[in-house]
Design a protein around this nucleic acid. Sequence first.
DNA 1: CTGAAAGCGCTTACAG
DNA 2: CTGAAAGCGCTTACAG
Lengths: 337, 337
Amino acid sequence: MSAGRATPNLSRIAASLGVSPATVSNALSGKGRVSAEVANRIRAVADAAGYMPSQAARALRTGRSGVLGLVLPDISHPLFPQIAQAIEHAASTAGYGVLIADSRGDTALQTDAIYRLIERGVDGIVIIPRLGTRIVDIGCPMAVIDSPSTPGNTVSADHWQGGQQVADHLVSLGHRAFLLIGNNPLSNVQNDRIGGIRSRLPAGVSAEVLWVEKHDAEHGAASSLGLATRVASGVTAFACVSDLLALRALTELQRAGVRVPEEVSITGFDDLAFSAAVTPALTTVRMDLPRIARTAVDALVQAIDLDAVPATGSSGVPMHLVIRQTSAHPPGHPAAD
Amino acid sequence: MSAGRATPNLSRIAASLGVSPATVSNALSGKGRVSAEVANRIRAVADAAGYMPSQAARALRTGRSGVLGLVLPDISHPLFPQIAQAIEHAASTAGYGVLIADSRGDTALQTDAIYRLIERGVDGIVIIPRLGTRIVDIGCPMAVIDSPSTPGNTVSADHWQGGQQVADHLVSLGHRAFLLIGNNPLSNVQNDRIGGIRSRLPAGVSAEVLWVEKHDAEHGAASSLGLATRVASGVTAFACVSDLLALRALTELQRAGVRVPEEVSITGFDDLAFSAAVTPALTTVRMDLPRIARTAVDALVQAIDLDAVPATGSSGVPMHLVIRQTSAHPPGHPAAD
DNA sequence: CTGAAAGCGCTTACAG
DNA sequence: CTGAAAGCGCTTACAG
């Protein structure tokens, strides 16, 4: 590099204008201690010179880095893109950058990740714990996004209400025999979703919960969930706690010759990238991630400004049902329209 | 917060030991200008005191932030988790943090994202352009990950060779009628993959390319690719340039009553999260992302240390075929085992 | 409304 | 091997 004319600094542009660095600083930060005309002249020159304030100097002086950390137990989770995008957008709107830290799926490394972030000087951390991991309170503002059932939660989707929407939808379609599929009985999120579903099932409707093993991905294929048997014994609605599970159900059922949605309905959660692309397209429930991210970031920013701990509000952000083609009236049920 | 006993700084621990800040700095940075015993004592005290060097001060002094930026045209791409994880790991191994920037799928915002990163003082940027976007040369080291066919490329997977593996596999299985499916005729990556496949198709094998529209996701379902018709006209191998497309093909075909892999084979690329979970599990080709990330980050770090522009090597990192259950011998072909 | 001064916490030549 | 000094580029009381 070593280009001719490096980026100028505050003093340089102050000198070129014959004013003090303090005045330039004030003019540029718009704190209004400078006359309008001088401020304008300063801004013009700064722009023309391509002035970029040094974040390092500012951080050193103010004690604030302007950077937020984002920690997830597993960056490779398929929901990560949506989350990262929402957080990044909310953060950059609030004037913050986002530093990522991965704990590679290992909960033990979560604490390491948090420490690395703190060492880098982040002003606050958005954390999405996979399980009900106890978040150790480092002396750093944190906003945790999980389920309202998780203590210390700052904001979350209302998974319970999301579950209710699934149930209402499926019940109104005429389904009377449900299989609820999850893969982690310890997850508050999954339990909320399942609890929400059950809470809206009228008397006379059967619903069993199937907790499936997490297949270890890598090269091996996932094992069969034995769903065809369930169909044989009368289940017509498969409500899964995630789209990944729903996709697994869909393909397994299709492979077994069961027709979806003519014979059974399938629903998921999260509206992952593939959900609209499969045939039939997956009926699912999506979180309002932009709003959740905004809430989390706002809480964090406020805590940073006040130098306090973020409020622990269990506000549940409503979820939205996305009705697509995997859910329809069960066989023998008169179409409603 | 305002906890009692804030984190100590260099001077404080120097004072507590009766040595100079310079000595503490030297001892801690291990540059060896300090006697072993003094160095040990200093390290012990620093550890005990929980000393954390101020990144801001260090950055201001050295002119290096120790942070790398990661730019993708669309953070919500399903491959993002794998990429982010690989980059984050490579970067943190090299002692760098990773700041993300999203251009929300809009190529025009890519430049904005890069600028935001530079304003934040990143030392270098890893960029993955979606199309053959011309990357403007900011005065900042950049490593671009794309296809070897892209000018300015620093490192990439050998998509062509990946395509060849797909072709070899499918041909050895006995397939003679291919449909190659892509969704972006302008993408170097897709063209390389398809080119690689074609390059290994023996005479007498038919292969047509189908460029499908990118369905706009959101709520609408993807439209039919009309794949059943292709089966009727004799196609037995569907080679897709991505797993998303392969999944679309798989479900569409299953839905149409075509049996996979008994009647047709399907292959994808990238080994996305769902690929091992579907039934039958998807045969796919995966990139060696850890290695690609390491190469990109190393090139960047070297460029940063030398204050130079990263080498433009078009090294293609080999891809790996992951054979799963969507590919098998076509009907009428004798099983090889 | 504007300026002079101090200082955030490091690191790096430069002396000794 | 160790220390004194300067300085990275800002911002923020404090004077004027």
